[in-house]
């Protein structure tokens, strides 16, 4: 579970995140939807403990992100559009390195790789150097790294950005497979159809604030619009809240 309360983040004079609060529960996919620069990545980075909030509270899997950052990181898997790999290591060596940093025993690492690699089709290129892989292949390896320790909480920041259709599909279907399990998934995206298809509940983020929050149905009925896109455009252009 992720609980965010009263979250603020300033970079000098720039307010990146202002009074953000939401709760993502196990078994659901919670979406943060908003244009680029809305503050989604900053919010996710604070949850992942790599940025410190100016103000506010974050709890991940029962641990306080400010007081127990190591515990939070232990229970978290992160995949972002910027996630890179070590080009001179093979796909498998990349996964192993991050798994070992997470103190997973060797037999456990092997077991998890045997489970995840075939599902993502990584076993075909597991022994190739990451530098020779396509963007889609790399993103799948990065996904394997995020999942290797079977974390209860997953953060996905624009995970399909820049991917071809087939790779996007396979990342999305993997994401979907977590619905109804004991995992909490937080997805940040600027793609309307992605949010609509994957997310159980959505927070619409604009200029660092959550301007609307609810299920796709709730958002539609609140605004009186039929399409999520229309809801979004009204919020962003009107600058108001529902």
């Amino acid at each position: 579970m992720i609980r965010v309360t009263n979250l603020h983040k300033r970079f000098g004079d720039f307010v990146a995140v202002e009074d953000v609060g939401f709760e993502a529960r196990p078994g659901e996919i919670f979406g943060l939807l908003g244009p680029n620069g809305a503050g989604k990545t900053t919010t996710l980075r604070m949850i992942a403990t790599i940025l410190k909030p100016t103000r506010g509270e974050i709890t991940v899997a029962g641990f306080d992100a400010l007081k127990e950052p190591e515990q939070v990181r232990r229970h978290l898997g992160v995949l972002s559009e910027h996630t890179g790999l070590y080009d001179r290591l093979t796909a498998e060596e990349n996964v192993r390195y991050f798994a070992r940093l997470r103190d997973l025993p060797e037999d456990e690492i092997q077991r998890r790789m045997d489970e995840i690699f075939p599902r993502l089709g990584i076993d075909e290129y597991a022994h190739k150097r990451a530098g020779t892989l396509s963007k889609g292949m790399k993103q799948k390896v990065a996904l394997a790294i995020a999942l290797i320790h079977d974390p209860p909480v997953l953060l996905f920041d624009e995970p399909t950005s820049g991917l071809d259709v087939m790779s996007s599909r396979s990342v999305r279907s993997f994401l979907e497979s977590f619905r109804g399990t004991d995992k909490t998934v937080l997805l940040s995206t600027h793609l309307m159809p992605e949010a609509e298809r994957l997310c159980d509940r959505i927070g619409i983020v604009h200029k660092g604030r959550i301007v609307a929050l609810g299920t796709v149905e709730e958002l539609r009925s609140l605004s009186g619009k039929r399409e999520l896109e229309d809801v979004f455009v009204e919020l962003v252009e009107g600058g108001g809240e529902l």
């Binding site: 980075r45 992942a48 403990t49 790599i50 190591e70 515990q71 990181r73 232990r74 978290l76 992160v78 972002s80 910027h82 996630t83 890179g84 790999l85 070590y86 080009d87 991050f98 940093l101 997470r102 103190d103 990065a142 790294i145």
Partner: peptide
């Protein structure tokens, strides 16, 4: 530049 720093920072070690 490679974008691996963030992956490293979300792992538990100090």
């Amino acid at each position: 530049e490679r974008g691996t720093l963030e992956s490293l920072l979300v792992t538990p070690p100090r």
